[in-house]
Design a protein around this nucleic acid. Structure first.
Lengths: 257, 257
DNA sequence: GCGACGACATAACATAAGTTATGCGGAACG
DNA sequence: CGTTCCGCATAACTTATGTTATGTCGTCGC
C-alpha cells in the first residue's frame, strides 16, 4: 500500500529507506472515517492508539466541571495525534473531529518496537513531540499575555501556516473551518467577544467569514497585529539528520567494559 | 562517578543495567553551579545542551515585545530541561534559575546516539517529553478557563506535587520559593491581583507567606478550590516497561524482503 | 549607618472581557 | 413544509482583573 498516510507524512521530513517504509506500513491499520463532530476518544479511555490525520480537521479538548471547556489544539492533515498520551495509560484529553475526517490508527504499543528498529524514525517521532510542545508553548503565551485581538490574529495565522505545510496543493490555506465557539474555547474567550473581535478584523479587511468558517485576507497585516513569528513551526530536520548519520560510534566503552 | 544526577533521575523510573548507566554517565558533563537569577540560556541561542536539575529551581520564560513576559514552566530537582528544543536549532525560550542551582549539562547531539543504544532510555526520554506536554496542557487550561483564585491554587498544588516526587526526603514540599511577580507571569495575571488572591487564601489559612516564598498550609482545601486532579502528573512507567520487554520480534519481514 | 533596591502591600480608578438576552437565517430532519 | 437546532450577530449591563500610584519593610553594598 503506497498511499499510506503515515509514510507520506514522514517522507515530508526525510527520505525513508524501504525498511522504514515497511516498518511504518506494517503498523498502520486501515484508515477510518469519522463524521464531523465524532469523539475519536474520550478522557479516561485506554490510550492504545495514536492516529495520523489523513484528511479533515480534529481538535483535542478538555471538559471542565463547570460546563465550560478548553480546546487544547487543532490538528490538520499530516499531523500525528495522540503522542502526548505516550506516558499515560489513560487518555488525558478528548479528541474530536470538527469536519468529516479520515484518520489512520497506529497502535501505541508498537512505537517502542519501532524506536528500536529505526533510529531515523525514532528521532523523527521525538522531533514531532518537541514540535507539539513548541505549539503548546505558543498557545500558552497567547492565553497568558495577549489581548483578544492579538489572540485571534495569532491563532488564525498559526493555523494557516500549519495548513501551508500540510497541504499547500490540496486546499485553500486561508480558509479555516472553525466556528466562533471553537475559537472561543481555544483562546479562553467568550463567543460574544470572539464575535466582536472578528467583526473588528473584518471591518479592517483582515479577515472575512465564509459559510463554514473564517477566511484570512491579509496575512501581513494580521502578523503585525499579532506579533506573529512563525519560527516555532519550523523544525530543524537538517541538523537532526546530520546528527543521526554522525553519531554511530561515539561511546564504544559502554558494553566492552 | 556514582552520584550522577541523571542516573539518579532515571533510576527513579526503572532499574538500569550497567550499560545504560555507563551510557548516561559518559554523556554527562561536570555539574555546573548557577547563582539565583542566572540566564542559563537565551532565546535564539544555539540549542546544544539540555540539563538535569540537580538542586534549586529554574524556569523557562519568554519576553514579549511590549515588555511583559510569560513564564512557561518551572523546574525542580530531578527535572530534565531543554528536551523541548530537540526539534529546533535555536532555543525557543529563555531559561533562568530562580534560586541558586546546580545543573548537569548533557549534549543534545548525543541523544540520537543514546536512542540507538538503549531502548529503555529512549522510551524513558519519550515518556518525559510526553509528561512535559501533559504539564503544559494543564497550564493551558489554567490560563484559559480558570479564575485567578483557581489559577493560583492549582498552580501551587502542581508544584507541590512535583516536589513531592522529586525530593520528598530533602525538602519541605509545601514551601515554594516563588515570588509573586513570578507567579503573576506564569499565570497571566498582574502582580497586584496575585497579591489580592494570595491574601484571600491566607485569610482562609490555605496558604501562608515565608520570607522567601509561599507556603501551602491546607492541600485538601486548596484542591477543592482548584478542582485539582494530580493524574496528569502520574506517568505509567509500568506498561511502558512491559511494552519494551514485550515487543522485540514483532515485524520480522521488514528487512528480510 | 545610609542609600538603593526588590518583594510585598493597599487603595482608587479604569477597562477589557464576561454575561444574559434576544433575534435572524440557513441546514437538517421528519 | 413546518420545526428544531446551530452558528452568527448585537445590545445592555456586570465584573473580574488590570493600571497607576504610593508606602512599608528587610537586605545588601559601601
Amino acid at each position: 500500500m503506497t498511499s499510506s498516510c503515515i509514510i507520506r507524512h514522514f517522507e515530508h521530513y526525510a527520505e525513508l529507506g524501504p525498511e522504514e517504509k515497511e516498518l511504518l506500513a506494517s503498523l498502520e491499520k486501515a484508515p477510518k472515517s469519522f463524521p464531523k463532530g465524532s469523539l475519536v476518544w474520550q478522557q479516561g479511555m485506554d490510550s492504545d492508539y495514536f492516529f495520523t490525520v489523513h484528511s479533515g480537521w480534529a481538535c483535542s479538548l478538555r471538559n471542565m466541571e463547570n460546563g465550560s471547556r478548553q480546546v487544547l489544539d487543532f490538528y490538520v492533515p499530516g499531523d500525528v495525534i495522540g503522542l502526548r498520551e505516550f506516558a499515560f495509560r489513560r487518555r488525558i484529553s478528548n479528541m474530536m473531529t470538527i469536519t468529516d475526517a479520515i484518520l489512520c490508527p497506529f497502535p501505541k504499543q508498537h512505537l517502542t518496537d519501532l524506536f528500536a528498529r529505526s533510529r531515523l524514525l525514532c528521532n523523527l517521532f521525538f522531533m514531532m513531540a518537541a514540535r507539539d510542545q513548541a505549539i503548546l508553548i505558543e498557545r500558552l503565551i497567547n492565553l497568558g499575555r495577549r489581548s483578544a485581538r492579538e489572540k485571534v490574529a495569532h491563532f488564525l495565522l498559526e493555523m494557516a501556516h500549519r495548513l501551508d505545510k500540510a497541504c499547500a496543493d490540496i486546499a485553500d490555506c486561508n480558509h479555516l473551518p472553525l466556528t466562533q465557539v471553537l475559537m472561543a474555547d481555544a483562546l479562553g474567550l467568550s463567543t460574544v467577544h470572539v464575535n466582536r473581535t472578528l467583526n473588528e478584523l473584518k471591518q479592517q479587511s483582515l479577515t472575512a467569514s465564509a459559510s463554514d468558517g473564517v477566511v484570512i485576507l491579509d496575512r501581513e497585516q494580521l502578523s503585525k497585529v499579532a506579533g506573529f513569528d512563525p519560527e516555532y513551526l519550523q523544525e530543524d530536520v537538517e541538523s537532526l539528520l546530520h546528527n543521526i548519520s554522525d553519531a554511530p560510534t561515539l561511546v564504544n566503552n559502554s558494553s566492552g567494559g
